[in-house]
Design a protein around this nucleic acid. Structure first.
Length: 258
DNA sequence: CCGGATGTTCACCT
DNA sequence: GAGGTGAACATCCG
């Protein structure tokens, strides 16, 4: 579930713990920490107070009076705060929801908790993450920023849009949806788009994020129901094409996406 | 049993 | 070195 849209809803939920103190790190999955020893993370987090929340792309940041706590959600991570999840998180696996998947759990003073529920364990917990490695946030991307991100790139447009160091926040579903709406072939060479097309695409990216946010998530796009073998373009009825671009399954309309 | 999955990283290649 | 590609990671689901 987590692309920029989902992580932004997580951030809003996380706002509830601003002003609270981390009383205990109840659970910590070593796999999420990389090479950092769990004890070190525990020692740095216990006792600090959360002072604010931020988001860059798909990275959720909790500012504290100690280190910055960075949370990445991988493919299947969700955030639960004080026992509640946000409403639009019903898509992955649709049904099962097992507390055994709670990989990171923080308990607060005076009360409450925050937990990351992540079946596939591809999420990460990072202290003081390097924020400079992320490009400008897709939700507010300008034509100039997008032009800079695509500049001279010989790779496919989709591959470049997925590159978090160039533009932060777009995932597989959002990229397919924005290319679909913009009428652009995601396989086109990224650096070959003319200025007008880039400006138009920047607008479509922002509008698509706003639209799907209002609908309830990255999986609510117009293209989404047709992302299957034999699926037809919702705009013109052409059979959709399935390819791998940038290492990800890609659905597009060979008729109106050029 | 097999393939694929809303992501990131790293080894390897051009 | 820059830039790009594909496998690996761990787990669940159809």
């Amino acid at each position: 579930m987590p692309e920029l849209i989902e992580v932004e809803t997580y951030r809003r939920q996380a706002d509830a713990v601003v002003g609270r103190r981390i009383r205990a790190v109840v659970a910590l999955d070593p796999l999420a920490l990389g090479d950092v020893p769990p004890e070190a993370v525990r020692a740095q987090l216990e006792g600090v107070t959360v002072t604010g929340t931020r988001r860059i792309g798909k990275l959720l940041l909790l500012d504290t009076d100690g280190p910055v706590l960075g949370l990445r959600f991988g493919m299947t991570g969700r955030l639960l705060v004080d026992g509640t999840a946000s409403i639009e998180e019903l898509e992955y696996g649709a049904d099962r929801d097992d507390p055994a998947w709670d990989r990171t759990v923080l308990a607060f003073d005076p009360d409450g908790e925050l937990r990351v529920r992540d079946p596939r364990r591809l999420g990460k917990v990072v202290l003081d993450p390097d924020e400079t490695r992320l490009g400008p946030d897709a939700a507010t991307i300008t034509a100039a920023e997008l032009a800079a991100a695509l500049d001279g790139a010989r790779t496919a447009l989709k591959a470049r849009l997925l590159d978090q160091g160039r533009i932060a926040g777009l995932g597989n579903l959002l990229v397919d949806e924005t290319c679909f709406r913009a009428g652009i072939d995601p396989g086109r060479q990224a650096g070959a788009l003319d200025g007008d097309t880039v400006a138009q695409l920047a607008g479509v990216i922002r509008e698509t994020i706003a639209d799907l946010t209002a609908r309830g998530g990255s999986h609510t796009g117009d293209l989404q129901p047709s992302r299957a073998v034999g699926g037809l373009c919702p705009r013109d009825g052409t059979e959709l094409e399935r390819r791998t671009i940038g290492g990800r399954t890609t659905w597009s309309c060979p008729h109106h996406q050029r």
